[in-house]
Design a protein around this nucleic acid. Structure first.
Length: 176
DNA sequence: GTTCTAGAAC
DNA sequence: GTTCTAGAAC
């Protein structure tokens, strides 16, 4: 099995499914990058955001509904989460990230992890929904732009602190 | 996506 | 000498 199909495989085992509806499921991210980190996936075999069109708008709204549901079920507050898609996804099967903004986790290790959630490499749900609604599709970022965003400084998501490296960022995040 | 590890950075 | 990052994975 290629690693990129890992998400699809995990959908096959009911033990992973926290919420199931006719259209979508919620699972826990296998390597959570914060205290809370869930993925909402459609049952329909949609590879990524780049396959989306206007006909998928109701499905996107269903995914967002499940995102709000899992936050409520966990007794958490919506404001403490960010909900969205990676602009450059690695894993096959469209997946909506539902992640708490603390980013305190032993699985958060690399600059790529940080910047994929805390730069324009993270597309908030509302932004993606609006873009599909207005333009009918999502465009892939040019490699130069991806490299530029991945190289951005390690800026804290809660204050102006800029970390020298990942260990110091992680220590800082724990203080918040 | 993760793991491993060489060599850069400190 | 140790910490940390970044590229290969057959």
């Amino acid at each position: 099995m290629y690693w990129q199909t890992g998400l699809i495989k995990s959908l096959l085992d009911p033990i992973n499914l926290i919420i199931t509806t006719d259209e979508a499921v919620v699972i826990a991210d296998k390597y959570p990058k914060a205290r809370h980190h869930y993925l909402v996936l459609p049952k329909e075999d949609i590879a990524s955001i780049f396959q989306l069109s206007k006909k998928h708008l109701p499905l996107l709204e269903e995914l967002h509904l499940l995102a709000r549901n899992i936050i409520e079920i966990r007794g958490e507050s919506y404001e403490r989460f960010q909900i969205g898609f990676h602009a450059q996804p690695s894993m096959q099967r469209l997946h909506l990230h539902v992640i708490s903004k603390d980013f305190v986790s032993s699985c958060l290790k690399t600059k790529k992890h940080w910047n994929s959630f805390n730069t324009s490499l993270f597309i908030p749900y509302e932004t993606l929904h609006a873009q599909i609604s207005n333009e009918g599709h999502i465009q892939r970022l040019p490699k130069d732009r991806v490299d530029e965003l991945l190289a951005k400084p390690l800026t804290c998501n809660q204050c102006a602190f800029v970390a020298k490296n990942m260990p110091s960022l992680k220590e800082h995040l724990q203080e918040h």
